[in-house]
């Protein structure tokens, strides 16, 4: 097997082992109901993690996405409350805003040669603040169209609900896979993650690619915001605090190298599902505190960082020996 597949294989193996352990204790966990809920509950996280994967593959980071999701929910709720625009139009408007917001951050990162960390940290505060500007309380969304999409699902055999937002998440992952692994843009993203100076020498249009990467992340954050508003039926400026870090964790557990240049979008999906599975297990168990999720996620993260370091050492050692 190609060594670049090892982290992905490890991710998938851990997920399968986790599934097996859960099944041993609670056989019912391997039902379509649980699977459907897993997809639905983690839909927004999965979507935003796809954007984050692209950013991290390029060697960057985007800390603004949690705030952007919250802003998106508030924006939708307030606009639907105060105007008579159709939600689809509001969605389009919102996606245009968040994409432009991401593109702006990308442009700053490139043209000012600033670390992505600091620029997106500013973006995080800006987006959170913009949410508060619109409202400081939770705004419920009441619109017939929302009722329609909230109830849109396909009843799987075994009574599991395959919801629209779950499907949207899987579609996002698929789109991300094609974008990253099957386009020239994706190749440029990997090139940037491998080294900006080299990428430039090889003919990557660094400015355009950087802007594109953060614009894509902004778009995905907006999409995740829409999904989150459908999921919760409201907009609240204090929602999804720290989601950016959860997304980063999912990406790393999914086998993507945190320093960029290596990884798979599919791994991110598995990472998200692994984290969701742990949560589901705790719900089934009922006696454990929900903080155990964090502890397990922390341990998994550590495991993957060590795994990647080990692989890196292995491959560089071999390169020197050859």
């Amino acid at each position: 097997m190609n060594p670049r597949l090892y982290p992905l294989a490890a991710t998938v193996a851990i997920f399968l082992v986790a599934c097996f352990l859960c099944w041993l204790q609670f056989p019912y966990m391997l039902s379509t109901r649980v699977a459907g809920n897993l997809l639905t509950d983690n839909a927004y996280l999965g979507i935003v993690a796809v954007g984050m994967t692209v950013v991290i593959l390029s060697g960057g980071i985007d800390l603004s996405v949690g705030s952007v999701i919250a802003f998106s929910g508030v924006f939708i709720a307030v606009v639907l409350r105060d105007t008579s625009l159709h939600p689809l139009l509001v969605f389009a408007l919102l996606l245009a805003i968040t994409t432009a917001f991401g593109a702006g951050m990308g442009a700053l990162i490139h043209h000012l040669a600033m670390p992505a960390f600091i620029v997106t940290l500013a973006g995080m505060f800006l987006a959170r603040g913009a949410g508060y500007m619109l409202t400081i309380e939770s705004v419920p969304i009441q619109h017939p169209f929302y009722d329609l999409i909230q109830d849109a699902y396909w009843l799987m055999p075994g009574k599991g609900r395959f919801t629209l937002i779950g499907a949207l998440m899987l579609a996002s992952v698929l789109a991300g896979m094609i974008l990253v692994h099957r386009t020239r843009f994706g190749a440029s993203v990997f090139a940037l993650g491998g080294g900006e100076a080299t990428a430039r020498l090889m003919g990557v249009r660094v400015a355009r690619t950087t802007v594109g990467i953060y614009a894509f992340s902004g778009f995905m954050a907006g999409l995740a915001g829409i999904v989150f508003s459908v999921y919760t039926g409201s907009g609240y400026p204090l929602a999804t605090v720290g989601t950016e870090l959860t997304a980063i964790a999912a990406v790393v557990i999914g086998g993507t190298l945190l320093t960029g240049g290596a990884g798979y979008v599919f791994g991110t999906l598995v990472g998200v599902l692994t984290m969701g599975l742990i949560q589901t297990y705790l719900v089934f168990d009922g006696s454990l505190s929900s903080w155990w999720t964090k502890i397990v996620i922390g341990a998994l993260l550590l495991l993957f960082i060590l795994l990647q370091k080990g692989l890196l050492r292995l491959s560089s050692g071999r390169g020197a020996a050859a």
Binding site: R4, R184, A187, F190, A191, G193, G194, G195, T198, A199, L201, M202, G203, V204, G261, A262
Partner: peptide, 17 residues
């Protein structure tokens, strides 16, 4: 000045895939 994280083929044909 090539990218070790891409395949040999990707490096050879980068930008002209």
């Amino acid at each position: 000045n090539l990218l070790p994280n891409l395949t040999v083929a990707q490096n050879l044909l980068f930008g002209r895939e």
